[in-house]
């Protein structure tokens, strides 16, 4: 029996108004439980591709499907966790780690009123999972870049997503935190079955955990296991060829 894809792009092209083509004729299928790295040079269309997958951008032509429904109107949005590129809070007042993570719990709980005890437990669990239990009540802006990024990942995890999309999650993050993030994502993928789309122009520690690399340069120029990546493309961020 065919497993229903989590993500399916059919002949997707995208161009900004008055701009050139960003993506041309992209076909992509991501199955449940896959850990997929979306790689390529800056400006190659990685972020555009993920935003189309999440229904934030409509393709110029072709169609995007999420959980078997059109991505723009998918009814199961609470199953999505998303960490945007260069994510940072633009809030004037101080915000604690716990408050940030609680915001990510909202899709999985009721919209109105106070948090239920089980939701508080899930928030604590997400904070512990990223190793920030001791900083739970600290102001986010007083933490290091790596810790801030981990807090935002905990926010994406707090809603218990079945698809987690991370766009350049290691930008500005020290090597030690990159290792911790890679281990965390591998655990989520292997033990909880979370499907992961990991967008980056560099892989670092996560490379040994992904089972599939999709190389994007205006279209998909490679889609397969990391071991089969042609040597000339082995640094997926390169701008040649």
């Amino acid at each position: 029996m065919r497993v229903a894809p989590v993500v399916e792009l059919r002949s997707v092209s995208f161009a900004y108004p008055r701009g050139g083509d960003v993506l041309r004729d992209v076909d992509l299928v991501v199955l449940p439980g896959e850990f997929v790295a979306i790689a390529g040079p800056n400006g190659g269309g990685k972020t555009t591709l993920v935003r189309i997958v999440l229904g934030l951008l409509a393709p110029t032509s072709g169609s995007a499907w999420l959980f078997g429904e059109p991505a723009a109107s998918v009814s199961q949005r609470r199953r999505l966790g998303y960490l945007p590129q260069r994510a940072q809070l633009r809030v004037e007042a101080p915000v604690t780690v716990r408050e940030v993570v609680a915001a990510g719990r909202l899709p999985a709980t009721r919209l109105l009123g106070r948090l239920r005890p089980e939701d508080r437990a899930k928030i604590d669990e997400a904070i512990e999972r990223v190793g920030l239990a001791e900083q739970a009540d600290a102001e986010l802006r007083r933490l290091s870049g790596g810790q801030q990024q981990r807090a935002l990942i905990a926010k994406a995890l707090a809603g218990e997503p079945s698809l987690l999309a991370l766009d350049e999650p290691t930008t500005g993050v020290d090597v030690e935190s990159q290792e911790a993030l890679a281990e965390l994502l591998a655990h989520l993928n292997e033990e909880l079955g979370v499907t992961i789309l990991y967008v980056s122009h560099e892989f670092g520690a996560v490379e040994r955990h992904v089972e599939r690399i999709v190389l994007v340069r205006g279209g998909i120029v490679f889609d397969g296991p990391p071991g089969e990546l042609p040597g000339v493309w082995h640094d997926p961020s390169h701008t040649h060829v």
């Binding site: 949005r77 609470r78 999505l80 809070l89 809030v91 408050e99 915001a103 899709p107």
Partner: peptide
């Protein structure tokens, strides 16, 4: 608060 902290993230997850 959720929309204040991350409007796009809230939109993605169906808020």
């Amino acid at each position: 608060c959720a929309v204040t902290i991350d409007e796009e993230g809230a939109r993605v997850s169906g808020i």
